[in-house]
Design a protein around this nucleic acid. Sequence first.
DNA 1: GACTCATTTAGCATGTACGCTAAATGTTGA
DNA 2: TCAACATTTAGCGTACATGCTAAATGAGTC
Lengths: 127, 127
Amino acid sequence: MEAAPNPDAYDLLFAALAHPARRRILISLNFAGGTMSAGQIAELFGHAWPTTTRHLQAMEAAGLLRHERVGRTRLYHLDTSKLALGRGWLDWFERDPVHGGPRRSNDLERENHDPGAVSIEHRGRRS
Amino acid sequence: MEAAPNPDAYDLLFAALAHPARRRILISLNFAGGTMSAGQIAELFGHAWPTTTRHLQAMEAAGLLRHERVGRTRLYHLDTSKLALGRGWLDWFERDPVHGGPRRSNDLERENHDPGAVSIEHRGRRS
DNA sequence: GACTCATTTAGCATGTACGCTAAATGTTGA
DNA sequence: TCAACATTTAGCGTACATGCTAAATGAGTC
């Protein structure tokens, strides 16, 4: 691969959400009030602990979790702000962006510059 | 692997959104009014056509696109209903999952009635 | 200090994702 | 019918994801 040498926040976010174990961790954390120890989380699954540890790291990299050491346990805290980023992205599709309502300048994509970096020239043809 | 022999709708959806090229395709389609030919889409990228074709297939598998043949071109149509699925999932984190109000509480051990299919039973001891 | 508990790090195996090029498919138009 | 066009399918290589087990770390306990 070489398409994403620098995965952006959206890459990390949606990739984090793409795995059922990770979604389940988030849901469970949410249910638990936002905080669980690594052990409690690991017990949710049949997976080996290191497997869950890595899921946790992936989500921490995506900014969905933070952790804190308390004695010999580690507490993981849910951080929902990044989820809002995902919601913001999805909201782009709630209306017709061209003929419909005004375009809010949400952040959206921004891989390089704007939403899709669209340059639609209808009737395109390549040589 | 064996964790996802049958990727569910959320897996497919979020995985589809995890790649910048695919997000850009969706944005572009939305921007263009919901429909573009495969060629127009392919021209958005420096990628080879087959690469884009496969992105399109991934999104079609996720239910985000449909296509239609018109003469020798193929028109891809945006289907935003599956995006609503993602929004619905994210909405689980907007409120207190237990009491329905604003986030609070710190209890563990909660019932299961959500997309993540949580079944928290702590005190489990894996042998 | 030695032992145990809680968790992570290291390292391995396998499958999938994603890029590519070459060939195939199906359509239109002469 | 043949050539050009629009797009997909086939097949390849590499990198990354995800599972595992074994070893390492760090914190309390005796």
